[in-house]
């Protein structure tokens, strides 16, 4: 499922690449006049940047487009020795996915529940903990922050076995709550860390002003601070959602028949008797498209969120 790992990159619109966005417009020297070395080099830089963008776009989009096209091809066209760009589209692959004994419906439900709920929980708890972390003056705060994010740095493989033992003891194997908890173990530290960076950007005089105006701590947080970190909340939610939605490693270990997610369904199409490329690309499309749409829908916040800052309006 290598294609399902690409959505985080695709919502980033090409025009926001840092090198391009901040560059002043380059005015070309009139023809025939000698160009100064400075203009010459800035022109060269612009070409280089354009070239890099084109390469990055091709790198990102070609597999996606190919997957999308293949999902509408019949079996012959998918596996044809010469790649086919023109073909009569068919919905057969999708129809097959949603019919028969191995209906894709429940997998989608499991994925939506596990990824959605775990991302919501991660953002909610991450916001609370991140706010506390951003505002506390305790000693060793930086170390604590680093420790929290460092738990996210461990490879998934390293935690799968201990988690499996714990989950088995708690009866959480093959359950949606189990998956949610598994995703939370990875997403929560990340959410705390990211949200605390957003809260640190909000001047503390804003909540002090709210406290003096008659707010309780909670009211100040809810009415003043939280609305100001909207882009942070959206960014964190999307990044957590993408992680959980794309996950295969946790799902393959912790889920069973009643909790299997989309990536598992995709892997089941790879059998010893053969690979159904048509259906596989159709699942790939079903996995990738929602994340792309979500990314595009919140693009405005995502871009300000990923760059941090400019949230106080000062």
């Amino acid at each position: 499922m290598s294609t399902s790992m690409t959505p985080p990159a695709s919502p980033m619109p090409p025009e926001t690449l840092p090198g391009e966005a901040t560059r002043p417009p380059v005015t070309a020297a009139p023809r025939g006049e000698a160009q100064s070395p400075l203009e010459d080099s800035s022109r060269r830089t612009r070409w280089l940047v354009t070239l890099l963008i084109v390469v990055a776009l091709l790198w990102t989009l070609v597999p996606l487009v190919w997957m999308l096209m293949s999902s509408f091809k019949n079996a012959e066209a998918v596996t044809a020795a010469t790649p086919q760009f023109f073909f009569s589209p068919t919905l057969d692959n999708y129809r097959n996915l949603f019919s028969g004994a191995n209906n894709l419906g429940p997998y989608i439900v499991h994925s939506v529940l596990a990824a959605g709920i775990s991302a919501l929980l991660a953002v909610g708890l991450g916001a609370l903990a991140g706010y506390g972390l951003a505002r506390t003056h305790m000693r060793g705060k930086k170390h604590l922050a680093f420790w929290i994010i460092s738990t996210r740095m461990a490879p998934i493989a390293a935690v799968v076995v201990p988690l499996f033992l714990i989950f088995r003891g708690l009866g959480l194997i093959d359950s949606i709550p189990g998956l949610i908890l598994a995703y939370l173990t990875f997403n929560l530290p990340f959410a705390i860390w990211l949200m605390s960076a957003f809260f640190a950007e909000v001047p503390s005089s804003l909540e002090e002003s709210a406290l003096v105006a008659g707010c309780s701590r909670w009211q100040a947080f809810w009415m003043v601070i939280l609305p100001l970190t909207k882009s942070g909340l959206v960014t964190t939610f999307i990044l957590c959602l993408v992680f959980a939605w794309n996950d295969y490693a946790f799902a393959v270990v912790f889920s069973g028949p009643s909790s299997q997610t989309l990536p598992i369904a995709a892997s089941q199409l790879v059998t010893q008797t053969g690979i159904d490329w048509g259906q596989l690309t159709a699942i790939g499309t079903i996995v990738v498209v929602p994340m792309m749409l979500a990314g595009l829908a919140v693009r405005r916040w995502l871009v300000t969120g990923l760059t941090l800052g400019a949230i106080t309006g000062e």
Binding site: P203, S205, E208, A210, V212, A213, S216, P227, L228
Partner: peptide, 20 residues
């Protein structure tokens, strides 16, 4: 007492206006 129970109003150096 908590700030909110003191019946005061404060003007901050950076004004602390709520941007939203």
């Amino acid at each position: 007492l908590a700030p909110r129970d003191r019946d005061i109003a404060m003007v901050f150096q950076n004004y602390a206006l709520y941007p939203h």
